[in-house]
Computed example of a mutant assay.
Amino acid sequence: MGSVAPLVKENKTSGSVKPIVDLTRSDMERVNALILSKAGSDVEMIPEVANHLISSGGKRLRPMLTLATAALFGYRGEHHIRLATSVEFMHTATLLHDDVVDESDLRRGKSSARMIWGNQASVLVGDFLLGQAFRMMVETGSMEALSVLSDAAAVIAEGEVLQLSVSKKMETTEDDYIAVIRGKTAELFAAAAEVGPIIAGATAADRKALRDYGMALGIAFQLVDDVLDYGGDSADLGKNVGDDFREGKVTLPIILAYQRGNDDEKAFWRNAIEGGENDDAALEKARFLLEKHAALADSVDRALSYGEAARAALSGLPRSDGRHALEEVIDFCIARIN
């Protein structure tokens, strides 16, 4: 079969989270303090499980989006701190639940909570964090923000169930898959970016612009993750490279390679994804076929297109440090592939 060529074509995109980190630094210190406070409980296992994941790293991009978009419209109150913390708790809860569903061993480069405390504890602590998130949403007194985030919670769950329904099915289409990641990943990005302008009293048009930005950013983010599963670094990815393949997840690169493959190649994909024949040799062949059919490169192109859609959503906003920070986030999310 020969050696596997570089996984994707050279990507000139660059970007940094530094502008948004700098913009939200003082508020994020308050968010981090509230995270630790609200993860506490008299039930000893709850903070143990929660803090295992909360303290394990992650850039906390989603809560930073809430803080940055509130600042974009001059918000000076306190409620953005609770909403940003709610967003992070929703994200953490979904990670705990996802690791159980996916039977993942690693999360952010460490043993997943389910590997240490078991599936039951992981699910229940995730439920606790969701409960705390909704408590904080109610404390803000903003029914609009509560509506957006509660809708997001339902859509995320729908996206997870939809993913289960298409898992291990090689007839999954690109549209099917985009629907999955729109729900399970991008919806929280969209909600995080929308509740900032809501709490700041922005116009409906500005709210929609930031929601559209978050949605496109979230899809781009997930598509890059899909590519990284076949050639990223475990430490950067936060899980074992090849986990999606071994778990039988049908992601966009596989969909493209399957559609473009000959009969023998399609049989390989069915055996690997649907039949569970996914050892290291199969992973190497999968990577070869993904490269042969430009499936990784084209998935990156899709991510770039969604990145441009996110940038276009910001085009009607006045130029400012806040808008620049949000634009840099787009480039950063895609540049992870380099």
Rank of each mutant, 00 (worst) to 15 (best):
A71P: 00
Q259K: 15
H97N: 06
L130I: 12
E103M: 13
Q163W: 10
M143G: 09
V227A: 13
A281N: 08
H79T: 01
M137S: 03
G2I: 13
D127M: 05
T172M: 09
P19A: 09
Q163I: 01
K169T: 00
D301Y: 03
A205H: 10
A303Y: 07
Q132P: 03
V138D: 05
L290W: 02
Q163S: 12
G275I: 00
H91F: 08
E328R: 10
L217W: 01
D105R: 12
Y213S: 07
R135N: 15
D226S: 02
K266P: 06
G159H: 07
D99M: 06
D225F: 00
I273P: 03
S16C: 08
P47D: 06
N338D: 12
L228G: 09
D212M: 02
L96R: 04
V148D: 05
D105K: 12
E284Y: 07
R211T: 00
A50D: 02
Y258R: 04
P6H: 11
I35A: 09
I273H: 06
I81E: 05
L304F: 05
E144Q: 10
Q120F: 11
G201Y: 04
T173Y: 10
K18T: 12
T85D: 08
L314A: 04
I81K: 04
G109I: 02
M64S: 14
D236Y: 09
E44F: 11
A309K: 15
G15E: 09
I198V: 15
D212Q: 06
G118L: 04
